[in-house]
Computed example of a mutant assay.
Amino acid sequence: MLRNREFRRFAVLFALMSAAAVTAGFAISPAAAVLAAAIAVAFGAAFFVFTRNRYKRIARLSGQIDRVLHNADYLSFEEAEEGELSILNSEISKMTLRIREQNQELRREKSNLAASLADIAHQLRTPLTSAGLILPLLADCPEEGERKVLAREAEELLVRMDWLLTSLLKISRLDAGIVEFQRRRIAVDELIRAALRPLLIPMELHGIRLQVRVPEGVELWGDFGWLSEAVENILKNCLESAGDNGRIEIACSDNPLFTELTVRDSGAGFEPEDLPRLFDRFYRGKTAGASGYGIGLALCRMIITGQGGSVTAGNHPQGGAVFSIRFPK
């Protein structure tokens, strides 16, 4: 306690006041001086005991904070009586719990980052390996027709790698929170046309029958460019699932609570164990025929939820997969 300058000042001031009181008591009578001295000693002793106890409790709190700074696994803050130290104790407890939660979250993010980097490396290695095998064959191939086939396969691999890197860059920007979505009125039929435009030729090549049912005048609020990409990713998934001569249905409904856009395909649907993880990053499903990189649907969810909407996926009662996008009014 004596290391505290304020306590030393108070002790000196109290000693001077006590001496003055005892001196004034002697001026009155010896009994008054003894009484003043007794009161001063009693008050000083009580103050000393009370202050020492407060310093002990503060020292214990300081020790707890030091253990927090050194990542102690278990901390127990004692209950204090009502008063200033009780409030301080409560606030430090809240701070400790918050720091512990943040540390746990950082550990999880670090683990997820390591897993994501491993997945990215694996996803990039696959087309690179394939391209590395094709290029020697292309160099040694004497037939022009076969060279064209190999060149087309190499080009497709490069396109897939470009899409993968672009999608990963978009995901990293969304994760970092540096994307500012523009909010404006969007006509749903215009949004669907923009999302379908890059897929019309693949749909025609695979004989996909397309049915679109969107009432006129239905609008929602959001970023047109990002939302069209999210819907396009869902349509790509449905295109792959429907297969040759399949069917894709797009419908829109509007009510006072929300605007809903549904996309359904005529494919095999999802396995029950895949449903909870369809929108997880790099998840490609348990089925042996699962293709893709497991990025499109993850990016789709990040775009839609980032603008206040929601997206779900499931199996339609009549067969096939169905995606539902909702934006509240």
Rank of each mutant, 00 (worst) to 15 (best):
M203A: 07
T23P: 06
Y55N: 12
N89E: 13
N103I: 05
A121M: 06
P328Y: 06
V179W: 08
C252E: 03
H316G: 01
D223H: 02
T262P: 03
A72F: 05
V212A: 01
N233D: 00
D66G: 10
A176Q: 13
I295G: 09
E232G: 07
E156K: 10
W163A: 11
A230I: 07
R301Q: 15
G132A: 14
A268F: 03
S310E: 15
I99G: 03
R5I: 12
E273D: 14
E260Q: 15
Y293D: 14
S266C: 03
L157W: 02
L157D: 00
R98N: 13
E155N: 11
S241W: 09
E260F: 09
L174E: 05
L257T: 13
Y283G: 07
R107Q: 11
A195G: 01
V212F: 02
M95L: 15
E156P: 02
W163L: 11
S76V: 11
L165S: 12
L169W: 09
D189A: 09
D223W: 02
I192F: 01
P215E: 10
L137P: 06
L137E: 09
R213V: 11
F323R: 08
C238R: 04
V34N: 07
G294I: 05
C300N: 11
L113F: 13
T312P: 03
Q64V: 10
R8A: 03
D175L: 08
N237S: 11
Y74F: 10
F258W: 14
S241F: 10
I186P: 00
